[in-house]
Simulated assay, not measured.
Amino acid sequence: MTVTSQRSALTDTVRSAVVALLAVAQIVVSGVGGIGGVGDSVGDVARDYPTPLLAAGWAFAIWGPIYLGFLAYAVYQLLPAQRRRAVHRETGWWLAASAVLNMGWILSFGARWLPLAEVMLVGLLAVLAVVFGRLSRTPASGVVERIVLRGTVALYTGWVSLATVLGTAATGVWAGLPGDGALATVAGVVVLVATAAIVGWVLISGTAVVGYAAAVVWGLAGIALNDRPGAVAAAAVLAIVVALAATARRVSTAGNPKRAAWG
């Protein structure tokens, strides 16, 4: 083995180990931060800065499948046969960064540093968007990769796309903007309409769109069913219809429907 290949193998091993450690660490931080073990619980802080876009508590249960999927991916990329694959080299460090940013926003939000938490959340979305885009360049090598890597990234990206919107609204309330009333309702409707347009574009042009759409629809349903103003609930339902229609169109018109749907 040449020196170059030895260095490459060492880098692959280090990257895989870092991803695995961070996958476990973010579950621990989420559990501790979620119940207020460090600072206040995420739910308590969110309820203290209510907006028309606040989703029902049950909607946040989606973090469970996301964390389990990420953990499964971490184990998968740690296998000797996987470490040197190009797909992991192109996405592994980015996903490691996503775990750091995720822990950062949880701790910042629990400490009520909402602007910092929002910066972390936007950074998390940007990192996931890079991974989501890179995975769209090539098809999955099999069912396992399609589920634990592409499915997890799609679900994660879809949820964080919506969570960023919710976080921005809460940060606005923290900064002094109204969280209720006619003005807040109008702003919520405008944001949801814009979200529907952006989500529709992503779904029409992306791959693994089923996972992405599932997360977005789940979050929008959480908004619509959380006793929101009628106009906001209607806008959330409209966004759901747009997401479902865009997903159906993408899969039905794709040259490779399986790849369009699942990656």
Results as ranks from 00 to 15, higher is better:
residue 132 F to N: 11
residue 128 L to N: 06
residue 162 L to E: 03
residue 135 L to K: 07
residue 227 D to M: 06
residue 129 A to K: 04
residue 114 L to V: 04
residue 171 T to Q: 00
residue 194 A to L: 15
residue 157 T to D: 13
residue 161 S to W: 02
residue 180 D to S: 14
residue 140 A to K: 03
residue 201 W to V: 14
residue 131 V to D: 08
residue 222 G to E: 05
residue 173 V to P: 06
residue 241 V to L: 07
residue 135 L to Y: 14
residue 112 R to S: 04
residue 205 S to G: 08
residue 237 V to R: 04
residue 133 G to H: 12
residue 238 L to R: 06
residue 158 G to I: 10
residue 238 L to W: 06
residue 163 A to C: 11
residue 171 T to N: 02
residue 229 P to D: 03
residue 152 T to Y: 15
residue 227 D to C: 01
residue 226 N to M: 12
residue 233 A to Y: 00
residue 156 Y to F: 15
residue 130 V to E: 10
residue 168 T to D: 02
residue 176 G to V: 06
residue 155 L to F: 13
residue 198 I to Q: 11
residue 236 A to F: 03
residue 214 A to T: 15
residue 199 V to Q: 05
residue 180 D to I: 00
residue 159 W to I: 05
residue 201 W to I: 12
residue 171 T to C: 02
residue 170 A to E: 04
residue 197 A to Q: 10
residue 141 S to G: 15
residue 223 I to L: 08
residue 120 M to P: 01
residue 220 L to T: 00
residue 200 G to C: 10
residue 231 A to C: 08
residue 138 T to R: 15
residue 138 T to G: 11
residue 147 I to C: 05
residue 165 V to I: 13
residue 140 A to L: 07
residue 169 A to R: 06
residue 147 I to M: 08
residue 118 E to K: 04
residue 136 S to R: 13
residue 119 V to H: 03
residue 176 G to M: 12
residue 202 V to A: 13
residue 117 A to E: 00
residue 128 L to T: 01
residue 175 A to E: 07
residue 110 G to S: 06
residue 176 G to T: 08
residue 202 V to N: 10
residue 216 V to W: 06
residue 167 G to N: 04
residue 151 G to K: 10
residue 232 V to Q: 05
residue 154 A to P: 10
residue 235 A to M: 01
residue 137 R to V: 13
residue 221 A to C: 11
residue 120 M to Y: 12
residue 152 T to Q: 14
residue 135 L to I: 09
residue 142 G to C: 11
residue 151 G to H: 12
residue 232 V to A: 01
residue 157 T to S: 15
residue 123 G to Q: 09
residue 143 V to G: 09
residue 132 F to R: 13
residue 131 V to I: 13
residue 165 V to C: 00
residue 129 A to S: 15
residue 146 R to G: 07
residue 222 G to V: 09
residue 170 A to V: 06
residue 199 V to R: 00
residue 238 L to Y: 03
residue 213 A to T: 11
residue 156 Y to C: 11
residue 126 A to Q: 12
residue 116 L to K: 06
residue 190 V to Q: 13
residue 177 L to H: 14
residue 201 W to Y: 14
residue 201 W to D: 13
residue 237 V to Q: 05
residue 175 A to Y: 10
residue 148 V to E: 02
residue 114 L to F: 01
residue 120 M to F: 14
residue 109 F to W: 08
